[in-house]
Every structure is written in C-alpha cells, then in structure tokens.
Design a protein around this nucleic acid. Structure first.
Lengths: 141, 141
DNA sequence: TTGGGTGCAAATCATTTGCAATTAT
DNA sequence: ATAATTGCAAATGATTTGCACCCAA
C-alpha cells in the first residue's frame, strides 16, 4: 500500500513470482531503482533507500542487487573508475556513452554494430555470449 | 648487456628519453612485458619479474605499471572479473575477444565499428575520447 | 652527492561474508 | 514455526601509500 510507482510494483510482482521474499528493505531499494533515471552506484542507492527505509544497510543493498541481477531485474555495469553502477533492465539492449567531464550516462543502440560484432566473432570461430561497448566522450564544442 | 629482447631495449630507451630512471626492477618488468603475448595481471607480472630480479616487490610492479601507462608504453585493461591486465602498446589500435571458458584474449580490429562509433557519438553531440569494446565469447562447436 | 626509486607494512576502497537476531511466509 | 533475510563488524582482494633506506645519474 505504499506509494510505489508502476515500475516498482512490477518488480515487486516479479520477486513474488520468483519466490523471493518481499522485505521492507527490498521494497525501498526497488522503489529507488524504479525512480532512478541515472545509473547510480551501490552507495548512492543506499543513500536514497535510507530515506524511504532507514534500516537498510549497505550490505543488504549489495546482497539485494546481486539477487536482482541474477533475476534479470537489474543490470550491473563496471564503467571506468569507481564502483559498479546499476540500472533497471528495460526491454531493449543498449550500450553507453559516458561523458568524461560530467559522468553523465547516455544510452544508445546500434543494430549495425551488433551485427558486425557477431560477424567478427564468427569469423574467428567464436560466438558472442555478451559484450560491452562504452564510448567515453566529450561534448562537441 | 643483458639478454633483453629488441622490444625490451626499445622500452628501456623510451624510459631514458623520458628522463625516467632505469632501475634493475624496471628492466625486469619491461623484459617480462616484452616477452608476454598474453595479457597478464599485476600479480602474474610480479611472479615472472621475480625470476629475473628477485628483489622486485608487488608495490613496485604496480607503481611501475602506472608510470609506463602514463608514458604510453603499456595499456591497462579492466576486463570482467579479477584485476587489471596489461599489454605493451603496439602500433595499431585494437579491441578484444575474451574466451569466457579459458580466459584467453584474442585481439581484433574493425574500422567499420570505429567509424560507426564516431558517427553515433557525433549525432548525439559528442566526440569519442576513448572507447572500450569487449566481446565475451565461446568457441563455436 | 642527492632526489628519485624501492621494499615493507599499513591504509584504502569496493564488495563480501560469518553470525546471531529478525521477520516474511 | 522456521527458513530466508538482515545488520553489524570483521574479512577479502586489488591497489595505493607513508616512510626510512637505497642507488642511478
């Protein structure tokens, strides 16, 4: 009965469905994740979650993030510098541009690049399991 | 006078030119780096360097790798899992395929992908400072 | 000679884990 | 009831750093 958003409700339903216990601290974290449109790290998520549910510990944030990642609810990114950053997984696959000056993250998607990756791997006798493409960029003057 | 390879001699010359002191431990590390065709991490490089110069400490390996990286002599990669891995910088830029089963690293190069990256960034108002493309792959059956 | 370089041990940083207490089911 | 989940603090693993000694130039 909290004021969770639609996105959050869906994630909570996903947990229940997967037989994972829905705790106060998990609801807080899911709510924070659902609202975030940036790509926060664990400490930032902890700070935000504490405002909703002061009892959440950083350890639980880390543990829950791992559970959510395994469940496909969030994606973990290891961008250059600092710790891992997270985002709720939305339908379409995408890669990231990182503004080297501001740290801002922009998402983009390119079928062409994906196809070229597959082609390159195939020609070398491999198939791509997953990949990582990050463009560290600066705003054009 | 040592049994250093051509590659190693060049790196030593580069250090001298840059006014960086050429020490016993640095020669050992450069020699190990010159011989490596895999992408070893700091601990592995330390193990190999100790066989040439038993006095090298892991701290010095890390310190020297940072110096070499700043000097453009080596490249540091942060692949998924474990610590950073290093390679001597060769002329041509390239990206990496990582065999998820064996950990093996294969290099590849694609002008087409680079061009697409630039195009995508440009259309979003950015210019690419540097990028990172890693294909985590499995050998085709 | 002398300031940069080194080994060692202690300090960081991000993340994980053991354990006793709590709580969702 | 009872097994999953939690908070806390201590442990981990990779990397960095302070400091007194050492050695390349």
């Amino acid at each position: 009965m909290g004021g969770e958003s639609d996105k959050t409700e869906k994630m909570i339903a996903a947990l229940k469905k997967a037989g994972i216990r829905v705790t106060r601290q998990r609801i807080a974290l899911l709510s924070v994740l659902g609202d975030a449109d940036d790509h926060p790290d664990a400490v930032e998520l902890h700070n935000r979650a504490k405002e909703i549910e002061p009892s959440v510990s950083l350890a639980t944030v880390y543990r829950t993030l791992s559970v959510l990642e395994e469940g496909g609810v969030v994606h973990r990114h290891a961008f250059d510098g600092g710790g891992a950053r997270f985002e709720t997984s939305h339908e379409e696959h995408h890669d990231h541009i990182l503004d080297v000056d501001t740290g801002e993250v922009i998402e983009f998607q390119s079928d062409k690049i994906e196809q070229l990756q597959d082609k390159i791997a195939r020609e070398l006798g491999y198939e791509v399991v997953h990949h990582r493409l990050e463009l560290y960029c600066r705003k054009k003057p």
